[in-house]
Amino acid sequence: MHVCILRIFATLSALLLAASAFARVAEADADFATVQRVLQHPRCANCHIPGDAPLQFDDSRPHAQHVRRGDDGKGAPGLPCSTCHGQANLPASYGAHVPPGAPNWHLPPAAHRMVFIDAPAAQLCRTLKDSAQNGGKDLAALLEHVRSDALVLWGWNPGQGRAPVPVPHADFVDAFRRWTDAGAPCPG
């Protein structure tokens, strides 16, 4: 009898645990979906590309002047990103079509491209966590990066003529934190 009850209890507990785990996985997936939505927004994805030619604007058209990634991600030798992209967005007096700016404007280096654009969720997730690609960042470092990196933050303050990332930055960081707290599981 007791054994029986215990068994039932154990089974129930297991089911509850499984349900809770399932719920946690679902939560983590939802959080990662938020992360994905941000990473694949043109503000981020335009430079997280498989080739060497970055994109620009909300319609992700080829970048003007056919600029190139360069091995270090900082543009072609002789035409670094910093030739046109300064440390901050320009004042309104410069007009609507000037290049935006933020500290350390760059793409990922050619050796680890961190491709975001068009990546399926699972692949995006693996890319993000791959320390060989992400500049040796563990989950804590990744979280700090999305929380405070000036170039990341530019996505929410892109200046004239560009839509900001539609997910509020705080919500993005919260989702990212919950996802990493959940062990950063990859969907699927």
């Binding site: 002047q65 056919h66 600029v67 190139r68 072609a76 030798p77 002789g78 035409l79 030739t83």
Partner: peptide
């Protein structure tokens, strides 16, 4: 790039 290739020149001077 002290010895630029044709491609380097195209990339840098396209601006």
């Amino acid at each position: 790039k002290p010895k630029p290739s044709d491609a380097d020149i195209d990339a840098a001077m396209a601006g």
